[in-house]
Design a protein around this nucleic acid. Structure first.
Length: 312
DNA sequence: AGCCAGGTTTAAT
DNA sequence: ATTAAACATGGC
């Protein structure tokens, strides 16, 4: 076969039907909460992201169709086939949290005086998720103890330095780095990206766990909350907050509250009109929401930030 | 200027 | 079992 044939690309398009409600504007608001994000990209209302499959990279582009109550995703990507179409749909369902039964949550929330007004205020909000456990762990480590703006700047620097680049129409896009790429990251290089030595050790450690097979996506997703929590906390650099954060932002587990986190704490203080809530007070307050307490906490947090930014 | 950010580990009481 | 210190940087 002549060489040039292999280089031909076929742009494919397919649709994903989604159980509403879903308001992608809130996902975009979240992904674009600081400028300079380069993994989860929004351009002209379209979501774009690099994925790797069949050991090559592809750029997805997603348009959001339909209304909040009856949404659809229109996905464009090169070299589509049955196999990767399925994989792409799964990734997108994960990233936009589309498998979550929001209607059920809203029925539950309607009976709660704190939650009820918030759910109508940000109707169709689905807390976005990381596309993989590895990405979740790395981003969570990067986000520890530093402000969000700085954390996301560092993440972008890591992605530019260690992610795989794909150039299309003169523009370069980056996929999130693989464990292979980050496993060999040196302290010197990472310091240039403003990653501390300590965090570099955590990150290369996590990468190694993936490479040696100690850590894998399927394994963790089969565990119940308690198991997964203590399993993840055994990893160097993953404490209570990180473990809970990874479960909710990495797997969309709605029952886990990252109560140690200052963001969640601030939101609880705001909506319950109390000051300086301690971690265990947040956990106690969240108990009333039972299996939805993690989702409820993210609803409080998102509504809180939304109100604050509107206040100016 | 000083405290707070999407904390965790290690070392000392 | 609890408490402090180190890690690193930027925003307000």
């Amino acid at each position: 076969m002549p060489n040039f044939i292999k280089k031909m690309f076929f742009m494919g398009i397919f649709l994903i039907d989604v159980e509403g409600p879903f308001n992608p504007a809130y996902s975009q608001k979240y992904f674009c909460r600081v400028p300079g994000e380069i993994v989860d990209l929004f351009q002209n209302g379209k979501y774009m992201r690099v994925l790797s499959f069949e050991d090559k990279l592809a750029l997805l582009s997603v348009r959001f169709l339909g209304k909040t109550v009856n949404p659809r995703l229109e996905v464009s990507c090169e070299s589509l086939n049955q196999e990767n179409m399925k994989m792409i749909e799964q990734k997108l369902r994960r990233v936009f949290n589309l498998n979550l039964d929001l209607q059920k949550f809203y029925e539950f929330a309607a009976k709660d005086e704190v939650l009820a007004p918030i759910t109508s205020e940000i109707y169709g909000y689905r807390p976005p998720c990381f596309s993989s456990l590895f990405e979740a762990l790395v981003c969570t480590i990067v986000g520890q103890q530093v402000n969000v703006r700085f954390a996301l700047d560092v993440k972008s620097r890591i992605v530019r330095r260690y992610g795989q680049a794909l150039t299309l129409n003169g523009k370069t896009y980056y996929g999130f780095p693989t464990p292979e790429a980050l496993q060999s990251a040196t302290a010197t290089e990472m310091r240039k990206l403003r990653v501390s030595r300590q965090k570099t050790r955590y990150i290369t450690g996590v990468a190694n766990l993936f490479l040696e097979g100690t850590l894998d996506e399927e394994k963790v997703s089969r565990m119940i909350d308690e198991e997964a929590l203590s399993f993840l906390m055994k990893i160097k650099g993953i404490g209570r907050w990180s473990s809970e954060y990874v479960l909710i932002r990495g797997f969309g587990r709605t029952s886990v509250v990252p109560a140690v986190g200052t963001g969640v704490r601030a939101a609880f203080s705001y909506f319950f009109k109390k000051e300086r809530l301690a971690e265990d007070e947040v956990r106690t307050l969240a108990e009333r929401w039972r299996e939805y307490k993690g989702l409820a906490a993210f609803y409080l947090r998102f509504a809180y930030y939304k109100r604050k930014s509107n206040d100016g």
